[in-house]
Design a protein around this nucleic acid. Structure first.
Lengths: 120, 120
DNA sequence: CAGAATCCCCGAAGATACTG
DNA sequence: CAGTATCTTCGGGGATTCTG
């Protein structure tokens, strides 16, 4: 049985919720960031490797998104001093805290695809 | 202890994952849809009510986003035949399946805010 | 109130070329 | 390879007005 909640209480709860959601969206906005983090969840990746995996992203965008993810401490950029320089990107511990969200998105997407396929 | 996974296996797993993520992102792209669904999670809402709650959205966008959500069966539009017509939007059962994602986002956002506040 | 229509602008993002 | 720099285009989306 559902509890009754006063309308004002209800409203403030809702706006709190929305504020938290917005805080998250501010960090992972755009479609690329989630995909990038999702990809890095499977291990360190080099720049080109990421560009290949994150379908459709251009170098400029990838570069920019990575920089922003780095600023928010979600991703680490590691430079190896080889002759053509080698760069690897890896997810940080903090970045890993986003994985539950990403897992849920992957789960939902898989379910959704199944639903669309069989139903239609 | 972590299992070893062959690289090809690894790669296909990763791209499956990314594909699922993209399927989800295709449905809930933009920052508005998540907020709208999040808001409707607290109960039916009228157009203006939504516009007030979803911080910063304009009428045109709200209208467009709602139409898309409706097309994807995530939201229902209910019209009451009153003198100035009344319209209510409500989340569908299918739309509710997105709530785990949104919950996670709200949780993360709250945590993140706390972290930013205390650390800095 | 719940939107549709119109006008308009700026910034996201692609293409291309260049560099260390 | 791992980007940066430059130029350009396209459309997301705001502001405003209008209607049932």
């Amino acid at each position: 049985m559902r509890e009754k909640i006063a309308p004002e209480r209800m409203h403030s709860e809702c706006s709190m919720h929305l504020r938290s959601i917005n805080d998250t969206l501010d960090i992972i906005n755009g479609k690329w960031k989630i995909s990038i983090i999702g990809s890095l969840g499977f291990g360190k990746k080099r720049f080109m490797e990421l560009q290949r995996e994150v379908e459709g992203i251009g170098a400029k965008m990838l570069s920019k998104e990575l920089r922003e993810l780095e600023m928010n401490k979600l991703v680490n950029r590691v430079v190896y001093d080889t002759k053509p320089v080698t760069v690897e990107y890896e997810i940080t511990e903090y970045g890993k805290t986003l994985q539950p969200i990403i897992q849920e998105m992957a789960r939902w997407g898989a379910q959704h695809r199944k639903k669309i396929m069989t139903r239609k």
